[in-house]
Write a protein that binds this DNA or RNA. Structure first.
Length: 485
RNA sequence: GUGGCCAUAGCUCAGUUGGUUAGAGCACUAGGUUGUGAUCCUAGGGGUCGCGGGUUCGAGUCCCGUUGGCCACCCCA
């Protein structure tokens, strides 16, 4: 008896076949969404010099990292907790020769030494999408649209998930216009960030210290600000303050460009900085996924403009994705001044939300989606000639490039073996009936050929059958086709 | 790093105020209904009750420790 039982380290996961299938489905979905939006895949090392992470986040980050020194070595390394520093390093090294914009994505594994809890583990995968070298709102929206494209592909609707957007620069400009001194902005942002963790009354009380009325505090508490605007109206009020004519103009432009949308619009943080963003969101046809939300701050000090998080509409789980614009980050890592916008999405929360919404594909659909359905399941009916022909037939079919399976059981009960074939989600079955022939059955339709096929012709016959879509049935593929545009 | 809850077969669980060789369903394996994916029948493998220690005549059942899990805090790149 072993005196010690080996267990996986805290916060890590073991991936059995079904788990691997789901993980691959997710990463393949990430890849597909990235690629159809024109992003190129990159990657870096799984560990970096520790300094790379303290540059951006300070020494305090070290306790959150898995760091180590090689035996006998002097340098300290850390397993990567995020991709952004690596991205900045990659970009800075070749900035001069890279196109503008540079659009990169990756779907690697990350490590964080945190206490695990729901939606947070110590090892996880995260999709990163970044646009470098483009300061326009279109770049902001491109990142968000890629994110939304994934949600659509997975079967989510705007009723399931909400993209909650804020704008750091616009928010701070608005603070300033209200006479809040620059040095108090950080404290105010941090207060907004704590909104969901404070009792409403206390939150309002603390806001009052910044000069906000109880009525305005209520708007912050509700988080989302949707203001009724009539295109014919000459006045618009936000947070109880009437906007000036210069501010109203972009609203009206926005309204006129949005045929078919409701005249209820999110106008939180309305300003010259936000209107172009809203316009671009509309042009990308994802405005219906988006709410502006004053309380979205993100913990990062380096965000400079738009910031966003994606949450379940009902508020369950933690953020599915988050990101924003960080125009000074590349410079921080030694590159040229480069406007940049990006986002990250982890597999842990995404999986939880998919389960919440019943959007995890059934095993057969997963197998179809990630391309692991067997083409053919070869069965012997027990005839001595068929027994001898079984493995050579399997080999010949594999030589022709097909995904071929056969039983490892001893029974030759055809019914049981067809059951096994069906359990593997194979498209076609071949029942070898003798040394020289086998009959083909389509496991999707249940239709079996009336006449057997000479064994030497099986590779060609099966290949032909599969090319014509044979065996495609039997599973419902829930993965939606990419949407046009 | 702090706190709370939890830990019995691969999975979901039952195990009476501590008492004989620890159970069920599903799953799995084999066989049957003399070759067609259903249903069904039969048989079988598999746990020493996360691990270690303690109390007791006796512990899965009580106590302590430890490991792991879940949840919240901190943090969230």
């Amino acid at each position: 008896m072993p005196s010690h039982v080996f267990q996986a380290p805290t916060g890590t996961r073991d991936f059995y076949p079904a788990d691997c299938a789901l993980r691959r489905f997710i990463t393949e979905s990430w890849r597909a969404a990235s690629i159809r939006h024109g992003f190129d895949e990159v990657d870096g090392p799984t560990f970096e010099h520790l300094d790379l992470y303290t540059v951006k986040s300070g020494e305090g980050i070290v306790s959150e990292l898995f760091s180590f020194t090689r035996a006998g070595g002097e340098r300290t390394y850390a397993l990567r907790p995020e991709f952004t520093p690596t991205l900045a390093r990659l970009y800075a090294a070749k900035a001069g020769s890279l196109p503008r914009p540079t659009k990169w994505f990756c779907t690697p594994t990350f490590f964080r030494a945190e206490r695990p809890q729901r939606g947070r583990l110590r090892e996880f995968m995260q999709w990163n999408v970044d646009v470098l070298g483009d300061p326009s709102p279109q770049a902001d929206v491109e990142v968000i649209a890629t994110c939304v494209s994934l949600f659509r592909a997975l079967g989510f609707t705007p009723a399931d998930l909400r993209v909650r957007i804020n704008h750091r620069a616009a928010l701070c400009a608005w603070f300033e216009s209200r006479g809040i001194a620059l040095e108090r902005h950080e404290a105010l942002l941090s207060l907004l960030d704590q909104k969901s963790k404070l009792p409403a009354a206390e939150f309002a009380a603390r806001l009052a210290a910044f000069g906000f009325t109880p009525e305005q505090a209520e708007v912050f508490v509700k988080g989302l600000l949707r203001t009724q605007v009539s295109p014919r109206s000459s006045e618009v009020s936000v947070l109880g303050e009437t906007l000036d004519a210069a501010s109203i103009d972009p609203i009206k432009r926005l309204m006129s460009g949005l045929e078919g949308t409701s005249d209820v619009l999110d106008l939180t943080l309305f300003s010259e900085a936000v209107a172009p963003l809203a316009t671009a969101l509309a042009a990308a046809r994802i405005l219906d996924w988006v709410d502006f939300d004053l309380s979205i701050v993100r913990g990062l000090a380096y965000y400079t403009g738009m910031v966003f998080e994606v949450h379940e509409a009902g508020g369950q789980e933690r953020a599915v994705a988050g990101g924003g614009r960080y125009d000074n980050l590349v410079e921080l890592f030694g590159g040229p001044p480069t406007p940049a916008v990006g986002m990250g999405m982890g597999d842990v929360v995404l999986s939880l939300v998919m389960k919440d919404k019943g959007l995890v594909p059934a095993p057969a659909n997963l197998a179809e989606a990630i391309g692991i359905r067997p083409d053919v399941f070869v069965i012997s009916n027990g005839d001595p000639g068929a027994e001898a022909a079984l493995m050579p037939t399997v080999a010949a079919l594999r030589e022709s490039g097909l995904h071929v399976r056969h039983t490892y059981k001893t029974t030759r009960n055809v019914g049981k073996l067809l059951r096994e074939a069906s359990d593997t989600f194979a498209r076609l079955a071949v029942i070898i009936e003798g040394a020289d022939r086998g009959v083909i059955k389509d496991l999707g339709t249940g239709v079996q050929d009336a006449a057997p096929t000479p064994i030497g012709l099986l590779p060609a016959a099966l290949g032909d059958r599969l090319r014509r879509g044979g065996g495609a049935g039997g599973v419902e593929v829930s993965v939606k086709a990419p949407e046009p545009g």
